[in-house]
Every structure is written in structure tokens, then in C-alpha cells.
Write a protein that binds this DNA or RNA. Structure first.
Length: 224
DNA sequence: TGCCAGGCCGGGT
DNA sequence: ACCCGGCATGGC
């Protein structure tokens, strides 16, 4: 079995077990970008509340959000947690969007994948996962998003050590799979889906039967 | 009722 | 280059 075979086997098992995940949940690319910041180390349920508040104020769009004062923004996104930090991050991001692209997402899409990634990573508050989520889920660029669940699942399956860096973990997928944005989208969403069902924060991430989901883990017989 | 969620930054080794 | 504390609400 090559690495590619193993990765595709896992993908196929997840897809058959859970079906298409229809990610990212968001009405517009811009909403996806803001959601990517709001969901940092935060349950999506809480992010939904914050997004609803922003929509209620009519500012879930670039021109509106670029005007909002940080204090008011922090209050509106309170439910997503770390609200002072995230308000600052969003302000930084909006400043970038205005200065680089005149708040025009279409202009942003014309940028090359790697150069845009570098620029995003320079924004205070945007780390690798948030940058890649924006590139993949908002702009449909072919890059693989790594998150905490990816570490837990794939280190458990002895494909990599659990202290592997983000870039090395990402390379496992991008060096062995076709660069297909649609597939990268589905794969990461399925990993998160698996994590929600089986991979609570426990020392060794059993990936076994889970009272949480009531079904067997589709990867169980792959464990070393 | 605690524990934890779709991370990231900054200061210290 | 890593390691760690801080950031914070709401759901189960």
C-alpha cells in the first residue's frame, strides 16, 4: 500500500460512512472568511450565534464590517468566545482586505495561491489553519486544511508522529493526492465529522465505539 | 459541573 | 526553534 492508497482508502471510508458534508456552512465567500476567524478553537455552534448577530446588524459584508468600531464588533461577536482578540483579528483582516483589494473579493481571487497564503499569514490573527480555510473554503483554491483532528486521527494511524509540524502534515496530503479543491474540501470536512463523532480530547484518541455517536468508527480496523 | 471546542500570539527558554 | 500561558463563551 502506498501512502496515496492509504489516504484514499481513508477518504473513501469516511465518505461512505458520513456522506458529503457540504462545507463550508456560509452564504458568501466573505462570510466564510469571517467564520474562519471566529471558529478558532471554538465550537461552531457559538460561531453561528455571532454570525447571526452580524447579519442582524446588516454588516456581514465587506463595506459594512470595514466601518465597525472594534468595541461594538467585540460585543456583537461575544458568543464566539475570545471576543476581544477576535475583534482585533477581524479589524486587521478588514484593513488588509481594503488596502490590498479595495474590499473586492473578486480581486483577491485573482491572486496566486502561494503569494496570497504568505500575505494572509502576515496578518496578525491569521495562522496556517485560518489562512488555508480562507483559501480553500472561501476562494476554492486547492490547498489542504490541517486541524487538531487531523493530528489526532493521522498520528494515531502511524502515518506521522503527533508532533509533526503543520506544514509537514499538510505535505502528507498534498504530496500524495491530486490538488483538487473539491476533494480537499470534502476530505477535511470528513475528518472534522469523524472528530465530532469519535475523537474527543483524550490521551490516545481511541477511535473506537463511541457513546457520542452510537456507531462504529469507519477506520477502526486500520489501527496499528 | 467541569471540560472542551474546526487556533493564534507573545514572551520566555 | 520549541514551549507555554492567556484568551472566553456556551453546550453537553
Amino acid at each position: 500500500m502506498t501512502r496515496r492508497d492509504i489516504l484514499m482508502d481513508i477518504y473513501n471510508r469516511l465518505f461512505e460512512a458520513f456522506g458529503p458534508q457540504h462545507w463550508w456552512p456560509g452564504e458568501t465567500p466573505f462570510e466564510v472568511m469571517i467564520g474562519a476567524i471566529l471558529t478558532q478553537n471554538t465550537a461552531w455552534k457559538n460561531v453561528e450565534k455571532a454570525i447571526a448577530r452580524l447579519k442582524g446588524e446588516g454588516i456581514m459584508e465587506p463595506e459594512g464590517l470595514a466601518q465597525v468600531k472594534m468595541g461594538r464588533l467585540a460585543n456583537l461577536i461575544r458568543a464566539s468566545g475570545y471576543y476581544n482578540q477576535k475583534a482585533r483579528k477581524i479589524v486587521h483582516f478588514m484593513r488588509f482586505l481594503r488596502d490590498e483589494y479595495g474590499l473586492n473579493i473578486k480581486k483577491m481571487k485573482k491572486e496566486g495561491l502561494l503569494s496570497l497564503r504568505e500575505k494572509l499569514l502576515r496578518i496578525n490573527g491569521i495562522g496556517p489553519e485560518t489562512a488555508d480555510s480562507i483559501l480553500l473554503y472561501a476562494l476554492e483554491m486547492p490547498i489542504f486544511v490541517v486541524d487538531g483532528y487531523t493530528y489526532r486521527v493521522f498520528s494515531r494511524h502511524a502515518l506521522l508522529a503527533e508532533d509533526t509540524t503543520y506544514e509537514d502534515m499538510q505535505a502528507l496530503f498534498m504530496d500524495n493526492l491530486l490538488h483538487d479543491a473539491k476533494m480537499f474540501n470534502e476530505y477535511h470536512a470528513l475528518i472534522v465529522r469523524l472528530g465530532h463523532a469519535f475523537c474527543r480530547k483524550t490521551p490516545l484518541c481511541p477511535l473506537g465505539d463511541s457513546p457520542h455517536s452510537g456507531q462504529n468508527c469507519p477506520l477502526e480496523d486500520l489501527l496499528p
